[in-house]
Amino acid sequence: MSEAILATHHLQKRFGAVIATEDVSIDLRAGEIHAVIGPNGAGKSTLIKQICGGIQSDDGWVELMGRDVSKLNTQKRARAGLARTFQISELAMEDSVLENVVLGAMGAKGSPWQFWRAALKTPHLIERAEAALERVGLLSESETRCAQLSHGQRRQLEVAVALTLSPRAFIMDEPMAGLGAEGSKQLTTFLDGLRAEAPILLVEHDMDAVFALADRISVLVYGKIIASGTPDEIRASGEVRDAYLGDTL
């Protein structure tokens, strides 16, 4: 078994009386896609924020490449190698597609502290940005204002920005959300290839995609991991069926 790139240890978070995550320990190994599924309100978004920064855990810690990153803020975790994509697109809507990706390239290079040369005339930023756009198939839209993109294209752009970071691990929050059947299929194929580059922690509602992609699946219900295993094991689990999957499978 390969070593864990990313691991959470006994993560805990309460909001008042509500337990958002309870003793969540999951790991992400090189080359795999680990899907986290669960009903609405299961605490998936909270878990992502605990991993990527934004919510301070009450207890437990997060390790990236064996290093405890729990005390770091979001931007430092990003620089350490965590690339997150958002469920609801977080993009600079007034800017062009290219500018959004160049921003990622800047972050990857660790420096916004350049004041004179135009960002869009800086060859190494442009190269990196265009390479990412080409991979997600958005290169032809690079001049388009982000606000004018279709929903699906915004999802692609989110992924492209994450690519520019050359991260150690991807954390993707429902990348398929709102994509049509065709879009989901394309993205599924793309993520399938991406896992070789860096492992993906995939939070997703689209069960077709999850079962097609995941090497392992963890099921989160009321903040607790109730089952974890290969897609076949999860499919076979009675507990999961009761809690979440219902009769659809």
Binding site: E90, D95, L103, M106, G110, Q114, A119
Partner: peptide, 26 residues
């Protein structure tokens, strides 16, 4: 010059989406 520079781009995107800027490590 400043507005078009990487610094200006970062400042401008932090205005539009703080989360976006943080997520790329800025």
């Amino acid at each position: 010059r400043l507005q078009a520079s990487p610094f200006g781009l970062a400042l401008n995107s932090a205005r539009q989406s703080r989360a976006r800027a943080e997520t790329v490590g800025l």
